[in-house]
């Protein structure tokens, strides 16, 4: 019961996010808009109910389950892109390596600089 009550809150914020997306013609998905709005709402409210906390924890723990059906699709449409696999693989592997490196270095650099600044 309590978890369902929290789920209802999440669904309502998702519907709110979708409404914003459609009515304001935003290029961002309703889920992300809902996430932004619920975060601000909680900041204003100053606390989060147990119902909502347990519902969100439950959903986050099965995030992988929810993306699986989409992932499976690649195995069934693979032959459409034959001849491009080298480009795809290189872009994903090398590209991701470079972007992870960039993120870590940038974060490290700016954080350390900020800490030195404070000292």
């Amino acid at each position: 019961m309590t978890m369902l009550r929290g789920f209802l809150v999440l669904v309502l914020f998702f519907i709110l996010g979708e409404s914003m997306r459609v009515l304001l013609a935003l290029p961002v998905s309703g889920g992300v808009l809902g996430m932004v709005v619920i975060t601000f709402t909680l900041m204003v409210k100053g606390s989060v109910s147990d119902d909502l906390a347990s519902a969100s924890q439950g959903l986050i723990s099965v995030l992988v389950l929810l993306i699986m059906p989409g992932v499976v699709g690649v195995f069934f449409t693979a032959d459409q892109f034959s001849g491009q696999w080298l480009a795809v693989a290189a872009a994903l592997l090398v590209g991701t390596f470079l972007s992870v490196l960039t993120t870590l270095l940038l974060m490290k650099l700016v954080t350390e600089r900020g800490e030195q600044h404070r000292e």
């Binding site: 999440l10 669904v11 914020f13 906390a53």
Partner: peptide, 12 residues
């Protein structure tokens, strides 16, 4: 959709 919204809670 709701799962994406749920990510706002740990964020908060």
């Amino acid at each position: 959709g709701p799962a994406t919204v749920a990510l706002g809670i740990p964020l908060y």
